[in-house]
Design a protein around this nucleic acid. Structure first.
Lengths: 131, 131, 131, 131
DNA sequence: GTGGTCTAGACCACC
DNA sequence: GTGGTCTAGACCACT
């Protein structure tokens, strides 16, 4: 796994880096892009690739290990955990998206925007994002 | 304006209180629920109603003033700014929703969820939220 | 003296209104535009003309009275004080300008701007302002 | 950067400390004395050096960050922002001086002082200030 | 009455 | 170590 393409972080975001890492890895495992047994970049490798402090990477990996998403292997490298069913069913995957969509719905209500308008914009963004 | 219904805050949220205030007021002005010239609760009034420190309210009000949403009238309470045309046109209002929807679109891509599924859940949440 | 042309205030300025009043009157007396014995607008008149709280006007007038620029006359109206030599000599008048020019000089040094450039801009602004 | 020479404040001035900080830093960056990427003293360091409360420093830094003059690096000290090109061209730098010079011009008009006299005093003050 | 500034000091999150 | 947030409470300036 090329560390430069493993995850992308945005240092300007208000979201802490370690959390960006955790959530991206969690989603990629859920989506089946990372499969059980796959090796992930070492802390040092990824820290250098992302120009981030190694402790930040280490913190993210530890959290993912506690969650059962990653496993520490003999030696040093970590791998995607076996028992963690990779590629969760869609019904389960979409639950990971619920909090963000709920936030959008709350904001839409406060802005008194009609549902059609909100859905229109999301449709457009989904198109662009996947392009 | 009754200070108890002016805004609602959630002290448990990771989002700082002052930012919750800023965003709610910004949205209420954009939606036209607060009109140009409307008086807003005084710092002390709102602080007491929400049981937070006056400085927290003051910080939020100051940021809204810098944004041009509120206007200070020295010695008097603040009002919704005049030039900030009340009830922005919808084309502009929906822009306030774009960041959250973009985040949702990004997450959906990483989860490799089909657009229809994402839109389905949002539609459902919009219904429930407005109910 | 028409109250609308007596002074001009800028409610948006960070400078308090009462101080704007004090300094403008002081300068107009120093310049000889207001002469000893001239009546000035009443507190109520001016407050209405400027759309400002009467106490603000009153505070300014009181300060000018303490300075000896204005005098309270029998009845209600105030007049420019007699003993205050109206139309101070230029050598004295320019001293009223010194603090502002000193501030400009300090800022110019911090910006490392050449004197010629600073003087050029001031010359231009003096032209425009008197036009 | 030695915190004792980073900025000088005047606690007696009517201008709030945090604003003195903001304006001095802004001018030093504009003048190129602080270059993009330069580290600035930490909040605690500077607070101790100037004998003011850390929150006062923090407020100034936050405002400078909002202006785009400084950049936050989480967990590390702040630096002069990259996009804020160091050493702005003079044409731009002199604009920072315009408000103060405009104020001087306004006052000069009210005092009915001839331009030559005003410019004479400014020239003298510029000389003394740079000496 | 209004908001603004500052201090003292706690606690948290992040790196 | 870094900055951010919040509280408690004082004092000031302005209207």
């Amino acid at each position: 796994m090329d560390p430069h393409h493993f995850v992308q972080i945005n240092t300007g975001s208000p979201e802490p880096i370690y959390r960006q890492l955790v959530e991206q890895v969690r989603r990629r495992v859920a989506a089946g892009q990372l499969m059980a047994g796959d090796e992930i970049p070492s802390v040092r490798e990824l820290a250098q690739a992302l120009a981030v402090h190694p402790m930040t990477i280490s913190k993210a990996y530890s959290l993912l290990e506690m969650e059962g998403v990653l496993e520490r292997r003999r030696g040093l490298s970590m791998v995607v955990a076996a028992q963690h069913q990779q590629a969760q069913p869609r019904a389960s995957r979409i639950e990971l998206l619920r909090p963000t969509l709920q936030k959008a719905a709350d904001e839409a209500r406060q802005l008194q925007l009609p549902a059609a308008e909100v859905i229109g914009l999301l449709t457009q963004l989904l198109d662009e994002t996947n392009a």
